[in-house]
């Protein structure tokens, strides 16, 4: 059982409500999303312990020692910002512990720029049934369990 923690504080929403057809249809995997608090210098934490196999300013993937991949995506269509407004606190290939700060960013600026700052957290290649305990929609603190991946 893998605990996947909330990378940031905010409101838990269903993946189906994410304004992006790839995430809402769970094309890359099931998961949950967080509508983050609008505070400047918001931190995005590692949702699991593992290797930071991909690090973009707006998105990162951590792979656990047993091969589970978790994608954290900071906002929708934020690849178009080319890293502007995102500060990295780790490097690709780093071993990171759950809760470690990976990126800091400003969801309010993303929103002002016309993009959704919603943060999908995706269990890559998982089956929907594999996500067992899920945090109910509503407020969540950074570090609280968002969902559990049974594997």
């Amino acid at each position: 059982m893998l605990d996947v923690i909330a990378p940031t504080a905010g409101q838990v929403i269903d993946l189906a409500d994410v304004p992006d057809p790839v995430f809402s249809a769970a094309l890359v995997g099931p998961g949950a999303a967080i509508d983050p608090e609008r505070s400047a210098n918001t931190q995005a934490l590692a949702p699991v312990t593992g290797t930071l196999v991909k690090l973009h300013p707006h998105a990162f993937i951590i792979r656990t020692s047993d091969g589970a991949g978790i994608l954290t995506h900071l906002g929708i269509d934020t690849v178009q910002l080319n890293g502007d407004g995102f500060q990295l606190h780790a490097a690709e290939g780093d071993e990171v512990a759950a809760g470690a700060v990976i990126v800091s960013w400003d969801p309010a600026t993303v929103e002002t720029g016309g993009r959704s700052p919603i943060v999908p957290v995706i269990a890559l290649d998982a089956s929907t049934e594999a996500l067992t305990v899920r945090h109910e929609p509503g407020p969540i603190k950074a570090g609280d369990v968002l969902f559990q991946w049974s594997r």
Binding site: V22, V28, I61, H73, V79
Partner: peptide, 9 residues
């Protein structure tokens, strides 16, 4: 062509 985290745009 531009890669995002999980897709090619």
């Amino acid at each position: 062509i531009e890669p995002c985290a999980t897709r090619l745009r």
